[in-house]
Design a protein around this nucleic acid. Structure first.
Length: 570
RNA sequence: CGGGGUGUAGCGCAGCCCGGUAGCGCGCCUGGUUUGGGACCAGGAUGUCGGAGGUUCGAAUCCUCUCACCCCGACCA
């Protein structure tokens, strides 16, 4: 590609509304243009990158035995009503009516459509297993789109669905996809981790997420370097303390803590470690009032709490409700002296505590030296309802947990029969009996990968794309292209040679000043650059430079083609 | 949805408090000089000041409404 015949539109200053680095760099490099909140145009340069990611995904999916198809983005409501998700999905699902007032959605995912395909087409166990996938634009009306392409509303996704005659075969394909995803992200040049995950609204049993590791990631990941355990914090189990509850040593005492409504502040005032305090969170299920108890330095895991049958679903109690049930405004509430009608759910850690501090249900006061049984009844329920913290024991009992952040770029699920049952997707087995198909589903956020790759690979000059997704593998930067015949000849000859060798090469023939040219090539992330100038040509050399370490190597002009082949491989 | 903030040229911003009809940098156009790290000189184009209504002789500026965008949101302990 010649730069003069392409479209490069870089910016010196990033638009002010960009927050994370990948968003800023994508705007500055001219990869995307915002059209509306969470909706972007992929400019030619950005599209090259997106297509490369897409193609790696496609190649590996095909290699793994999946078959590509393309489903409509617009889906009739009846299919969604059939599985009940029309009512469950909420405002994230973009709904609209056609001219006949019939309801439609723009598909945020395609379980219903594929299950419809499967039930129409698959009649016999002989047709199984079958894995169909597509790479298609999705729309989810996110509450708060942000971070550019990382949480957009419209995005490109690879979604695959597999159908099986048995659970065992589903598990085989699940492992196949686990391996395939690992290969994909390896080929894309990303540092990633597969973690056990919650199944969320999709439903089903087993599930893994694939995260690109980056500090700006929206998800927290717990992992154990010793055992290899890894899970999304939403799911990671906080194991019960190994030690039994200590006997009490203090009397319960009411102490004045005016203005101290946070555990940290109370602990500081009382000169106690925050690990001696207990926080109470008031929640409602239907019209029933619950107190959730956590150690002062721990935080509630809403996903875990939601899974408790007697709390599903719950919401946080309003200030009025707190006052109505405890006779006290929020800030000083606690489990001591409450009515029998209020159920107390203690985190495992709290259930093991003794001589602790909690709110006195009286504004401006806390209680110290509180002990279970002696000062209040034992908790009604004891469950793991907190987020794990760094240093917790690994749930597999081997070592301690560490935390890091990740960007979710892939998610695989064992759906089992949730959709096939709702949509009556059956097949005839060997004995001629109808049976429900086992289903798996496997997603990759193609768009998001581009953002994630940049989060992980950039410096102060701009993007450093991994070679397999770079818009160009190598750029030729001729200095004085317009003036110097010898530079022009050398650049053109090299361009032709690299093209013939099959490289994705950019010849920057815009006749820009060197500073402009270098800055652009560095910003857009071209991983290799060959600089050709009269100065070097007089000595018969050109310069080869890698984007990542920037050390220039002088290479004789006659050998540069061979040098590139040696350096980049065929 | 609640809270906070911002809308002025393609991008980044000033002007707004103290009304007098718009400015800076980058980019863009023309000519010239330059050419190994975002050049220099000279000339030039570009704005319904997010939109609607109001106050006023006069509104980017004051008032009301609206739209768009950005940031934050269990921390009840």
């Amino acid at each position: 590609m010649k730069a003069s015949q392409f479209f490069i539109a870089t910016l010196k200053e990033a638009p002010a509304d960009a927050e994370v680095i990948s968003h800023k760099l994508m705007l500055r490099a001219g990869l995307i243009k915002r059209l509306a909140g969470g909706i972007y145009t992929w400019m030619p340069l950005g599209l090259r990158i997106l297509r490369k990611v897409e193609n790696v995904v496609r190649e590996e999916m095909n290699r793994a035995g999946a078959i590509e198809l393309l489903m409509p983005a617009v889906v009739p409501a009846e299919l969604w009503q059939e599985t009940g998700r029309w009512d469950q999905y909420g405002p994230e699902l973009l709904r609209f009516k056609d001219r006949h007032q019939r309801d439609f959605v723009i598909g945020p995912t395609h379980e219903e459509v594929i299950a419809d395909v499967a039930r129409r087409e698959i009649k016999s166990y002989r047709q199984l297993p079958l894995h169909l996938y597509q790479i298609q634009t999705k729309f989810r009306d996110e509450i708060r789109p942000r971070f550019g392409v990382m949480r957009g509303r419209e995005f490109l996704m690879k979604d695959g669905y597999s159908f099986h005659a048995s659970y065992e075969d589903l598990q085989r394909e699940y492992q196949n996809m686990h391996d395939t995803y690992s290969r994909i992200f390896t080929r894309l040049g990303l540092k990633f981790r597969a973690v056990a995950a919650d199944t969320g609204s999709i439903g089903g049993t087993g599930s893994h997420e694939f995260h690109v590791l980056a500090d700006s990631g929206e998800d927290a990941i717990a992992f154990c370097p010793d055992s290899g355990y890894a899970a999304n914090v939403e799911l990671a189990e906080a194991v019960a303390p190994a030690v039994a509850r200590n006997g009490h040593t203090e009397h319960m005492l009411k102490v004045a803590t005016p203005g101290k409504t946070r555990c940290e502040d109370v602990a500081e005032l009382l000169r106690l470690p925050v690990t001696r305090t207990v926080k109470a969170i008031a929640v409602m299920h239907d019209e029933q009032f619950f107190l959730l108890l956590l150690r002062g330095d721990h935080s509630l895991n809403e996903v875990k709490a939601s899974k408790l049958p007697f709390l599903n679903p719950f919401r946080f109690a309003s200030d009025q409700e707190v006052e109505q049930h405890l006779g006290c405004r929020p800030g000083y509430i606690g489990p001591v002296g409450i009515g029998p009608g209020i159920a107390v759910v203690a985190d495992r850690t709290v259930a093991q505590m003794s001589d602790f501090v909690c709110g006195a249900n009286e504004a401006g006061y806390h209680l110290t030296g509180v002990n279970w049984s002696r000062d209040l009844r034992e908790p009604d329920y004891v469950f793991d309802i907190r987020n794990v913290v760094e240093g917790d024991s690994s749930p597999d009992g081997r070592g301690r947990l560490e935390l890091c952040r990740g960007i979710e770029v892939g998610h695989i699920f064992q759906l089992r029969s949730k959709y096939s049952e709702a949509m009556k997707a059956t097949f005839l087995d060997e004995s001629g009996q109808p049976r429900i198909m086992e289903m798996g589903c496997y997603g990759i956020g193609v768009t998001r990968i581009v953002g994630a790759a940049i989060e992980q690979n950039h410096d102060e000059r701009g993007i450093i794309f991994p070679r397999n997704i770079a818009p160009f593998e190598v750029a030729i930067a001729p200095i004085g292209y317009g003036k110097s015949q010898s530079v022009r000849d050398a650049a053109s000859a090299l361009y032709a040679e690299l093209l013939a060798d099959g490289y994705d090469v950019l010849l920057d023939d815009r006749d820009e000043r060197p500073g402009v040219m270098f800055a652009d090539l560095e910003l857009i992330g071209v991983p290799n650059r060959i600089t050709i100038g009269e100065r070097g040509l007089k000595e018969g050399v050109v310069e080869f430079q890698e984007r990542r370490d920037m050390a220039a190597v002088k290479v004789p002009l006659a050998e540069i083609g061979a040098f590139v082949r040696d350096r980049l491989g065929a």
